[in-house]
Each structure stands twice: as structure tokens, then as C-alpha cells.
């Protein structure tokens, strides 16, 4: 990696469409923030500083999903300038809650329902999509918001040139580590089995079912989870809505193919 005269890696932090929760979390790392600024040369971070430079970068951390034409251009530009692009937060990784609608038609209908027939002046809205719909992403750091410790250790590994090490299994694993009684077995619709771990199963620790906010796990067995919830008496639309909430475009595939479901 090229280093500037301070011999520090150049980093840019960008927010697209999202709640900026992840950027806030980064700001919230008060003590560690000093370390971050010491370890790296932050070239651009709208939320934290004003003298942002848009030049070549070693690492770009991108938060939020792409939901306008302007953002589409922006993300392509970031990719061009950055050697390594890291998607941070559920929105950037999987589209997040804005990408919950399953196909273009449904999205249009919904957009009309909410905004009527207004024309957007500044920039044309496009369906909200995860950034890897437009560019190659090197590393993903999901979460809603991201977990502080995981963010710091991931950033640290990337700064040292090592790929991040994230859990590749589902929330259930952490849930068992925390010795929770499984909610699915009590007929509560928990999405833990199809959701990526990393949150520390925080919802279930508080007796709430997992809603999937870390996005789908690599090997999500959506079919089995779907059928299990059907057996427990939840209806098709309820399950579809629940699953689509955070996992965004990824779930569309499954429901698109689910033509032959028997009652």
C-alpha cells in the first residue's frame, strides 16, 4: 500500500443513504478515535471534519446503501480512488431496510404510496441497493449499527494488511454461547438461524427474537426457516415481510422461486 509522507495509510469514510449510525459509532469510539487518527491519515470524514480531500485513498469505509443517481456516481468514484473498499453496516453490505422491497414494481408502487406522484428535483431516486451491486467490495463489516469492538479490530487488521476475521456463522451460535433458551422452540419467530453473527445475540439476550439486522449468513437455509415458521402458524406474507426487512435484495431470490409452496 502506498503511504503518504507521514507514512500513514490514507482513509476516507463516506456515508450514503442510511441513518449514519455507523459513522456515529465511529465518532463514539472517543478514546480509540485518537488512535485511529494516529494510525491513519483520515482524508475524508464529513461528519467529523470539514477539510476533506477527495484524492487517492488506501482504504475507503463506506456506510449506507446506494439510493440516488448521485450516490451511484459517488460510489463509482470512490472505487476508482480507493485501493481497498470496506462496506460497513447492514445498508452498505446488504441494502438494509431501504432495500426491503423485493422487486422494481413493488418498489415503484411503494414509492408512489409514500410520496405520491412528486418529481424529485435534485437527483433521481433509484431502488436502494447494497454497494456491491455497483462496485467490487473488498471486505464487509455488517451490523446495524456495527459493533464497536469488531470495528476496531477489523480496522486494525486492515491497517496492518491482514484481512478481517469475522464470524461466518449464524446468530444461533452466539445465542447458545450466551445460554439462551431457543425462542423458535417456544414458537416465537426468530430469524437467528439465517442471520450473520457478530451482534452477540443481543436481542435474544433480552428475550426478543432476532429480526435479522446483521444481514443473511452465508449459508442461510431460508427454505427450512420459512417452512418451520409456516408450520408454527405464521402466514406467508408475515414471514416474507419479516425476512425482507433487513436482508434486502438477497431474500428476493428465494421468494421469487417460491412458487410451489403448498399451504
Amino acid at each position: 500500500m502506498t503511504k503518504n509522507n507521514n507514512n500513514k495509510l490514507k482513509i476516507g469514510i463516506y456515508e450514503l443513504t442510511g441513518c449514519a449510525g455507523d459513522a456515529l459509532l465511529i465518532l463514539d469510539c472517543e478514546k480509540e478515535l485518537v488512535d485511529i487518527f494516529q494510525a491513519a491519515d483520515i482524508q475524508s470524514f464529513l461528519m467529523a471534519k470539514s477539510d476533506n480531500i477527495d484524492g487517492e485513498l488506501d482504504i475507503a469505509l463506506v456506510e449506507g446503501s446506494v439510493s440516488t443517481e448521485k450516490e451511484k456516481k459517488e460510489i463509482l468514484d470512490i472505487r476508482k480512488r480507493a485501493k481497498t473498499v470496506v462496506a460497513i453496516g447492514i445498508c452498505a453490505c446488504f441494502g438494509g431496510i431501504q432495500a426491503a422491497f423485493l422487486d422494481e414494481k413493488e418498489w415503484e408502487a411503494n414509492f408512489k404510496e409514500v410520496y405520491g406522484n412528486i418529481k424529485m428535483k435534485h437527483t433521481k431516486p433509484v431502488q436502494s441497493k447494497p454497494i456491491d451491486e455497483y462496485i467490487k467490495v473488498d471486505y464487509y463489516l455488517p451490523g446495524c449499527p456495527i459493533d464497536k469492538e469488531q470495528f476496531l479490530s477489523t480496522l486494525n487488521r486492515i491497517l496492518r494488511g491482514n484481512p478481517p476475521e469475522l464470524y461466518r456463522f449464524s446468530v444461533c451460535v452466539e445465542c447458545k454461547w450466551n445460554e439462551n433458551d431457543c425462542l423458535l422452540n417456544k414458537d416465537i419467530p426468530c430469524l437467528g438461524p439465517i442471520t450473520r453473527a457478530g451482534c452477540g445475540s443481543i436481542c435474544i439476550n433480552h428475550n426478543l427474537p432476532c429480526v435479522g439486522c446483521w444481514g443473511p449468513v452465508e449459508e442461510a437455509n431460508i427454505a427450512s426457516e420459512f417452512q418451520l415458521l409456516r408450520e408454527k402458524g405464521f402466514d406467508h406474507d408475515f414471514i416474507k415481510k419479516k425476512m425482507a426487512n433487513f436482508s434486502g435484495t438477497g431474500m428476493a431470490d428465494f421468494f421469487g422461486k417460491l412458487k410451489g409452496e403448498k399451504g
Binding site: 456463522f169 449464524s170 444461533c172 451460535v173 447458545k176 454461547w177 431457543c182 437467528g192 438461524p193 439465517i194 449459508e219 437455509n221 427454505a223 427450512s224 426457516e225
Partner: peptide, 13 residues
């Protein structure tokens, strides 16, 4: 295999 959620609970418990 079709039904298994690969949740790892069986090993953990």
C-alpha cells in the same frame, strides 16, 4: 441436510 439450519446448536449444547 435439507432441513438442517446449520445453526450449530446441537454441538454447542
Amino acid at each position: 441436510g435439507d432441513a438442517c439450519l446449520a445453526c450449530g446448536s446441537c454441538s454447542n449444547v
